[in-house]
Design a protein around this nucleic acid. Sequence first.
DNA 1: GATCATAGTCGTCTTCCTGACGATAAACAC
DNA 2: GTGTTTATCGTCAGGAAGACGACTATGATC
Lengths: 254, 254
Amino acid sequence: MPPYDPSAFPPFAVTVDLVVLTVRSHSLCTLVVRRGETPFRGRWALPGGFVRADEDLGAAAARELAEETGLRAHDPGAPHPVPDHGAHLEQLATYGAPERDPRMRVVSVAHLALAPDLPAPRPGGDANSARWAPVEELLDQARAAGDDSPDALAFDHAQILSDGVERARSKIEYSSLATAFCPPEFTVGELRRVYEAVWGVSLDPRNFHRKVTGTPGFLVPTGGTTTRQGGRPAQLFRAGGATLLNPPMLRPEV
Amino acid sequence: MPPYDPSAFPPFAVTVDLVVLTVRSHSLCTLVVRRGETPFRGRWALPGGFVRADEDLGAAAARELAEETGLRAHDPGAPHPVPDHGAHLEQLATYGAPERDPRMRVVSVAHLALAPDLPAPRPGGDANSARWAPVEELLDQARAAGDDSPDALAFDHAQILSDGVERARSKIEYSSLATAFCPPEFTVGELRRVYEAVWGVSLDPRNFHRKVTGTPGFLVPTGGTTTRQGGRPAQLFRAGGATLLNPPMLRPEV
DNA sequence: GATCATAGTCGTCTTCCTGACGATAAACAC
DNA sequence: GTGTTTATCGTCAGGAAGACGACTATGATC
């Protein structure tokens, strides 16, 4: 089979960028790394890198995630849920404006990862340093200072982050995805605090408890209890097999 | 600024593929073109093509859509809705498995377009011919005959089509997107038949009427009436400004 | 022109879900 | 013990949806 005519199409570089979200001290945080190279040297950016020649897009995202955080990604397409507790990873969207990278044509396939609270990030790859930053802070900076401010994220990463956060906010409404922010065993209160942090609202503990325990297949009790949040001991649960929440959890109007 | 080191990343070709959906004679249909070139010569495929060197991804999708159907795409990011009746166009997902194209590494950014019923497609580009095919027929063939059957879609297009249909099915639940399948003025019954065709169910006309007319901003009456569906004359409506449907339209369990 | 078929529109009733909130339970700190 | 914190159960009113009856206005058929 003859190869394609190389003049028929221009060459592109393809990268993956990661929006890694977690909940730390009651606020939604994302992983950012400081760029050590031009362009945008010294600015914060989402972790990411080039897709290798024989690598699938999802595999590239999983590799970058492991390099930056040590997390193993769950493959949503796997026939059985992976028993150990890795991160949820899904494709978010693809960004390919011609001038988004000043040096050449780069198309970036952004991915969204949701992880339970992690120890401080281990710097790796081309990053001088890495940190968990509250998303509100990052997005407010981009809105207030403009994209050219030294506090703003590099490239179009503010847009990618914004899209990723919106995806997470809407997806926990109608799926069990919020459990991806929790450790393997968790209490109803811990799950409620995840919703509160992601949505930036406060929820009625009694109605929330009724909703999540009344949805078949959403939570399965492990039998244990814990007092790690203080107060009366709470039942421990694992995520059940149900992935869709029907009817959905309603996000309160602001 | 020095260019990137070319050895740091492998070259990719980037294409856009289109899932163009419409409702014809009470069933959900998609546009497919017959391939005139290897690979998969003679097989049906989704329309698409290479992204040009200075072209944004959305612009490439809009260009391909216009070439294949003559439709102009609405830009969802535009500050005001475009008054004329083009198609809804949005990015769907990106497919980049290393062997998805046998000749070289191709990453395809799939887009989803929703259009009102159109005249027979005009063949264009590299397609020998084009047709509207019922999606159930196409997907059943892929499932029954396997991907190597001559009836199956080329490349991974059965997967892309399946993802696009699922996106459309879920998105009309909580948005006013179903109006994109309708002409500029339409009746409640015509809108209901769109939902019925996309979901493959039948809906109660009375409850549907109550739901869509009771949601503020969803439909605005034009004052006219029509009897083009037979029976009692029905009020004509245009799509209102509301894009989100809250609470959502509930898809009946199968 | 009467009858019929077709489609549209308005109501009613029951059931389910949610939001608001009272009350009780079981731990810890002092 | 008292107070504080968190968890859990229960009650009640309001809203939305499913099921379905009733009526209306057109064109088609006899």
